[in-house]
Amino acid sequence: MILRKVHVYLYIVSVALGYLILWPFFYYFSRSPERYRTLNSFRRLWGLVSSAFVGIFYRFEYEQPIDWSKPYIICPNHSSNLDISAMCILVKSNCCFMGKQELENGLVTGLFFRTVDIPVNRDSKMSSFRAFKKASEKLQEGVSLIIFPEGGISDNYPPQLCPFKNGPFRLAIELKIPIIPVSSANTWQILWDTGTKHGSRPGFCKFKVHKPVETAHLTVDNADALRDEVFEIINNHLKQGEVTTTYGSQFSGTMQQTGNL
Rank of each mutant, 00 (worst) to 15 (best):
S30K: 07
C95P: 00
S93R: 13
Y36E: 09
M98L: 12
K138I: 00
V230F: 10
G18Q: 06
M98E: 03
L161K: 04
G203D: 04
L3D: 11
N156R: 15
G203Q: 02
K208W: 05
E214C: 09
A52F: 04
R59F: 02
P168D: 05
S154P: 00
E214Q: 12
A172L: 02
T254I: 02
S154M: 00
A225M: 10
R43K: 12
E150P: 02
K134M: 14
I12K: 15
L107P: 09
Q240E: 09
R122E: 02
F42M: 11
T258M: 12
T246W: 04
P163G: 05
P33S: 03
Y19V: 07
A223T: 06
E137T: 04
L39T: 05
S80W: 06
P159A: 07
V209M: 06
T194K: 13
S249P: 00
V220L: 13
F204K: 15
N121M: 07
T187H: 02
V54C: 13
C88R: 03
S50C: 14
T215K: 02
P149W: 05
N166M: 13
M87W: 05
F112Q: 09
S30G: 03
S124T: 05
S252R: 11
C96I: 02
K211L: 00
P159S: 05
I21V: 15
F169G: 05
